[in-house]
């Protein structure tokens, strides 16, 4: 049985009643591309997963935050995607976090999809992360390009990315053990 309510941001949030044998959590929101929205998102994700193990909750909060930050930094408002769409679903032994935004920078999206592919094909996410740290040490004026490596290594999430009609969708999935 579902309880429907509208929160202070005029968003739609549906909370499923807990099933003691399974974990069902669902959170969906529309975000404006304002940096202050990321902190609020972390709070809402933590609330949605309040009864989950602490390490899973922390991993999901971090993943949600990193994906949202990327959407704000690299996304843009277009007719078919004027806002950032965020969703979290924990169900049937898996947690899935998805972030969708518009982007007409095809070169930037190509770089994104290549990074997702690199992470998916790597047997050792820590090697990718450490290699990036070494690059930062060698080039102090360089920055960024760590978030997705962090989602994979620290969060334990697998990543997928699609790009259709200038809309980027990044999905992070993790088994709930």
């Amino acid at each position: 049985m579902a309880e429907r309510r509208v929160d202070d941001y005029g968003q739609f949030m549906m909370t499923l009643i807990k099933d003691p044998l399974n974990m069902h959590r669902y959170y969906k929101t529309t975000m404006q591309p304002a940096w202050s929205a990321v902190r609020e998102l972390r709070k809402r994700v933590a609330e949605a997963l309040v009864d989950c193990p602490a390490d899973l909750r922390a991993a999901a909060v971090m993943t949600a935050s990193e994906l949202a930050e990327n959407a704000i930094k690299y996304g843009e408002a277009i007719e078919s995607a004027p806002d950032i769409q965020f969703s979290l679903c924990a169900d049937d032994g898996e947690i899935c976090i998805e972030c969708t935004n518009g982007c007409t920078n095809a070169a930037g999206v190509t770089e994104l999809t290549e990074r997702v592919r690199e992470i998916a094909s790597s047997a050792d996410p820590s090697a990718l992360y450490i290699e990036r740290l070494e690059q930062l040490m060698a080039n102090p004026t360089d920055s960024g390009k760590l978030g997705l490596y962090r989602v994979a290594l620290e969060g334990g999430f697998g990543l997928e990315c699609t790009y259709v009609n200038d809309v980027v969708r990044v999905k992070a999935r993790r088994k709930i053990q």
Binding site: M62, E69, L133, L146, G147
Partner: peptide
């Protein structure tokens, strides 16, 4: 908590 953007100044 820190975001990934914090890592670069931390490493520096």
């Amino acid at each position: 908590y820190m975001n990934s953007a914090t890592v670069a100044p931390l490493m520096e």
